[in-house]
Amino acid sequence: MTSPAAPSEPKISIYQGSTQFRNWRYSAEQLAQTRQTLNEVAIAAIRKTFETDESGSSQGVAFLTADEEVLLVKLYISKITQLCGLFRFPEEVEATAVTYLKRFYLKNTVMDWHPKNVMLTALFLATKTTNNPISLEIYTTHIPKTSPSDVLDLEFLVAQSLNFEFAIWHAHRALWGLWLDIQNLSSYTERLDTEIYDAALNHVRASRLTDVELRFSPSQIALASLSLIQPELASQWMESKLTSPSEVEGLAKTVEVIKSIVVSQGLPPSVESVREVDRRLRLCKNPEKVPGTKAFLARKMDDDRLAAEKRSKKVADIQRTENGDPFGNELGQKRGLVDYDDDDDDD
């Protein structure tokens, strides 16, 4: 019509065009590697900060391992569920917040940012990105010992860590679609019991405690969840959708992998097991990120000094130009020496 169709780009599905598919899918090895690297880099940096503060002070500090970090995050995933129950948020908010929390810790470590705070921010952000906003004041007054700044201070960091990619495709939505679709299977003439759906949904919910959403597509997770309840139904549906036996076999294999992960890891960790990790975290937290510590103050002073330098340079620049104007500017609009609103000194 208006122009010939661009032949360069092959057609892809909507899901394949999503940021979730393009930027947030990992293999098991990639996940482990990412977490290991983050953990090592963080430990090295924190050790250095300790040593700068007081030589020899990093000796004997038992830093967390990557696995322990994952365990701690998992505990706070289960806290999101509790909070969502308290606020009666829709399932989409909960699922989105959980995804945000997981993605956040693929870019950051718990030794820098404690999941307790990040979880609160991720959930608050999720209410907004899913179009279920509530006021920050109401949000924080219903959560014990939380002030608005606890949530807001981290919002930018969380959004940035998510790469501002807020749209999430969820397995529970895929399950609903699957549930509607299997009712079209010719072999099922009777009405399917909704208990099947409810039970499968519980597996989808359990899957949120695992890494499967970082490795597989929502529809694969939904299919695996159904398969845990009604394996027969799941394979019939697969066969109705796929033509070649090798495709069916491939998908069945993926489904089995997901099933085993959901069953073995889809439980909230016991508070006991996490308590010890959390206790050690208090000792090995990055002091630069803990308000009030020497390292935190030192870093803040550094930042402030840089900002002040930038500002005075700007003043100098403006003065120079103004002095250079042979006609003066008395008749012009009086402007402050520094336009604080115009903080366009991003370089």
Binding site: K128, N131, P133, L136, E155
Partner: peptide
């Protein structure tokens, strides 16, 4: 913004 990142910007 008192509620942090604004809804229109987020959308």
């Amino acid at each position: 913004f008192k509620d942090g990142l604004d809804m229109s910007a987020i959308r």
